[in-house]
């Protein structure tokens, strides 16, 4: 049917009216339950370890501030902070965190706690990587060209893995072959892939303890001091992003590094095993 301009405009008008009416439904949706909340960009490993589920209710009960955690890789979390989409960052890549503050995106970095990385791999350990020396383990895996799953997602864990390769004298970017598999995804998906392919992988202990789909994988390398994984917390700079909830955000940070918060962190256990070791106030 040929349409007159008038009919077209009348229809368009009706359309806009309908869309506006529908949008009103959206706008009048009841406000979020908690008016006082902060958004924390954190890492998949902390979220998936179950720490937040344990920790946050304690803080929320005490302060009345709800904490909304967006779990991302450390790289993505830092970017979220740079864009001003979070109030607080809770991540684990000290080098990048220091730079974040130095560049003016964050106010001040507080060390909070550490956990440790482990190397998991198939029970029969074809590369004979088992031991307590992470560099030796990686060298053996590379020498045997045994399957290894890397997160390759610019997360804190990925950054740590790259540091270990370098320290072991291996230029992974150059030496990687088909045995080195880059999943480009979070810790859990990478472990799912490793479990499916019976491959080695570097993971934080917390995620591993919470991980169910282990298949034939077991911990092979652990206990090396170099495997410690330091977490830091920072307020996103309100000077750059005026909407940042600085009082509430700082209140959360202050609580985390307070004796009470530190004790709470130490109290989180899976199967009686402590996952995170508070070390606020140190120079880590």
């Amino acid at each position: 049917m040929e349409m007159t301009a008038r009919a077209f405009w009348r229809l368009s008008l009706a359309w806009v009216a309908a869309a506006t009416a529908a949008s009103t439904i959206l706008a009048t949706r009841p406000a979020e339950a908690a008016d006082r909340f902060i958004t924390v960009a954190s890492t998949t490993s902390t979220e998936q370890s179950g720490l937040f589920k344990y920790l946050l209710p304690i803080f929320e009960k005490k302060s009345g501030i709800a904490v909304h955690v967006v779990a991302q890789g450390t790289g993505q979390a830092l970017d979220t902070g740079k864009r001003g989409d979070a109030d607080v960052l809770f991540v684990h890549n000290r080098v990048a965190e220091v730079k974040f503050v130095a560049d003016g995106y964050g106010v001040k970095r507080f060390p909070v706690m550490y956990n440790d990385f482990v190397i998991v791999g198939p029970k029969d350990d074809p590369a004979h990587a088992k031991g307590n020396d992470v560099l030796e383990g990686l060298k053996k895996i590379a020498a045997a060209k045994a399957a290894f799953c890397s997160r390759a997602d610019k997360s804190g864990t990925h950054a740590a893995e790259l540091r270990y390769w370098k320290a072991a004298g291996i230029d992974i970017a150059k030496d990687k072959g088909p045995w080195y598999r880059e999943t480009g995804s979070g810790m859990g998906p990478t472990l799912n892939t490793a479990s499916g392919m019976n491959a080695y992988a570097l993971t934080d202990r917390a995620t591993w303890l919470n991980f169910k789909n282990r298949g034939d994988l077991v911990i092979l390398v652990e206990g090396d001091k170099r495997l410690f994984n330091q977490y830091g917390v920072m307020l996103v700079n309100p000077a750059r992003h005026p909407h940042v909830k600085k009082e509430a955000g700082q209140q959360f940070i202050d609580w985390l590094v307070s004796p009470e918060g530190q004790q709470a962190i130490a109290g989180y256990k899976i199967n009686g095993e402590q996952l995170f070791f508070p070390n606020a106030g140190t120079d880590n």
């Binding site: 049917m1 040929e2 349409m3 009919a7 077209f8 229809l11 009706a14 359309w15 309908a18 869309a19 009416a21 529908a22």
Partner: peptide, 14 residues
């Protein structure tokens, strides 16, 4: 509310 009139107009009008 947005797709319905859009589809209807595209369906009928030339």
């Amino acid at each position: 509310a947005m797709g319905l009139p859009l589809g209807a107009i595209v369906g009928i009008a030339r």
